[in-house]
């Protein structure tokens, strides 16, 4: 099956305020999508809703994820089924070590698929291998989740977790924000290393910068809770050149 994610007329709100006002989006295996848009257009809300953040309420619409009804699943099952969200602001969890955190995640997934927990030695080997993908320091693995990590370390940690969990759909929410050029390169290389013909990536970003490293096949522009434009990679370059105002003007005029 080529189709991985199909979102149809998705509406979502937080505290009675509607943020997503009818999203339609289809992502096929092997594709890299970029979702761009001005601040406050609903980009992060879209990623949060797809991952199942209980802070948001889906008011109408549907989303199928390789044939499953995504919206009816709890967040952990969405993860088990292969959806991964790299957070814009990775959450700090004092007192929970990275090792315990990842072991819990890996074994929960195995249990979901009726498998036995991963033996400790195998798990440590897995961690070691995957750390190499994003050049994550061994020291960070023994610390509490994201606690005291620099901005770049947090984002690398996200990609490290993605490498461990091997998702089929990765949503990178503003992964470039707060990264210097070296960190950006390491993160992007990590993402590219993990790319296969069977999985897909949605890159959410405000700027073109990240797209120099992670080449999108399809670019969407999200504005006021709707996808108002879809085009090829050239659309991102056009945005970079002209800014968002021409889109805003055009859409607002039509409305």
């Amino acid at each position: 099956m080529k189709e991985l994610l199909k979102v149809t007329d998705l509406h979502a709100s937080i505290a009675d305020k509607e943020i997503l006002k009818g999203i339609n989006l289809t992502v096929n295996r092997g594709e890299v999508h970029a979702i761009m848009g001005p601040n406050g257009s609903g980009k992060s809300t879209l990623s949060a809703v797809l991952a199942g953040n209980p802070a948001f309420t889906v008011t109408s619409g549907s989303a199928t994820f390789h044939g499953l009804d995504l919206l009816s699943m709890p967040p952990e099952n969405r993860s088990h089924e292969g959806l991964f969200l790299s957070f814009q602001y990775p959450v700090e969890i004092p007192g929970v070590s990275m090792v315990n955190f990842m072991r819990a995640a890996v074994n929960a997934k195995r249990k979901y698929f009726g498998e036995q927990p991963m033996p400790a030695a195998e798990f440590l080997k897995l961690m070691r291998e995957k750390r190499a993908v994003v050049e994550l320091d061994n020291k960070l693995a023994s610390r509490s989740v994201n606690e005291g990590f620099s901005g770049g370390e947090k984002k690398r940690n996200e990609i490290f977790q993605m490498a461990v969990l091997e998702p089929c759909l990765s949503i990178l929410d503003e992964t470039d924000s707060g990264l210097d050029i070296d960190a950006l390169r390491i993160v992007a290389e990590g993402v590219n290393k993990l790319k296969t013909p069977d999985n897909a990536t949605i890159v959410i970003t405000h700027y073109q910068r990240l797209l120099d490293y992670i080449k999108p096949d399809i670019v969407h522009i999200l504005y006021k809770g709707r996808i108002v434009y879809t085009g090829g990679p050239e659309l991102a370059l056009e945005l970079e050149e002209k800014g968002y105002d021409w889109i805003k003007n055009q859409v607002d005029k039509e409305a």
Binding site: A51, G52, N53, P54, A55, P74, P75, E76, R78, S79, H80, F84, L85, F87, P90, V91, E92, I93, P94, G95, V96, N100, F101, M102, A104, A105, V106, A108, K109, Y112, S144, V145, Q161, L165
Partner: peptide, 27 residues
Amino acid sequence: DEQALFYMRSRGIPLDEARMMLMQAFM
């Protein structure tokens, strides 16, 4: 922390286990 709970669930850790881990971490 609701955010931490969601973060853990998004990594596949079931809610009960996530709560337990956070309580242990708290102590």
